[in-house]
Simulated assay, not measured.
Amino acid sequence: MATPGSRRGMPDPPTARRRRRAGFSPDPARGRQFGLDDLRALLDSARMSQEQAQVLSRGGNWAVVQLAGRAFPGLHVQGDTFAALWTQLAEAARMLREDPGDGKALDDLDDAVREAEEFLRFYEAALAERGIQRPY
């Protein structure tokens, strides 16, 4: 699987696009300077809440977690693992836009699909072990 690297030439993740539209930019060349007031506003909007969660199963860089008040458990994926998967998908999409028959891009997509399938199988196994019906 590809590792996260330079984003140069790759599409920005949705969060970066939202922040840029709101005027946030750590790079003065791309917009106004990210200042202390911007940081305060960002932190205020991202305050953590104290919630209970039950970890149903852990494996590798992911876990199946049941949040209080939710009908079905969710899948928690470590940020670096998710970022690497996103990078791999974004790079494959870029390469396929340039050359729809690019064999390396197709191989990268196959790898990403296999990893997503691992997440899904792990999730399904955790639910089955506890007699929880899948939400799909």
Rank of each mutant, 00 (worst) to 15 (best):
A2V: 03
S6K: 05
S6L: 09
S6N: 11
R7I: 08
P11E: 12
P14W: 13
P14Q: 08
A16D: 15
R17T: 11
R18D: 07
A22G: 02
G23F: 04
D27W: 05
D27E: 02
R32N: 08
Q33E: 15
D37P: 06
R40W: 09
A41Q: 14
L42V: 07
L42A: 14
D44Q: 12
R47K: 07
Q50A: 11
E51V: 14
V55Q: 03
L56C: 00
R58G: 00
R58C: 06
N61F: 05
W62V: 11
V64S: 00
V64H: 00
Q66A: 07
Q66G: 03
Q66T: 00
R70N: 08
F72A: 13
G74T: 00
H76M: 07
V77D: 09
V77Y: 06
D80H: 10
D80I: 06
T81V: 07
T81P: 03
A83V: 11
L85T: 04
Q88G: 10
M95D: 13
L96Y: 03
L96V: 05
E98M: 10
G103W: 08
K104Y: 12
A105S: 09
D107K: 12
D107E: 14
L109P: 03
A112L: 13
R114G: 11
E115N: 14
E117F: 12
L127E: 04
L127K: 01
Q133C: 06
Q133R: 13
R134A: 09
P135E: 02
Y136D: 10
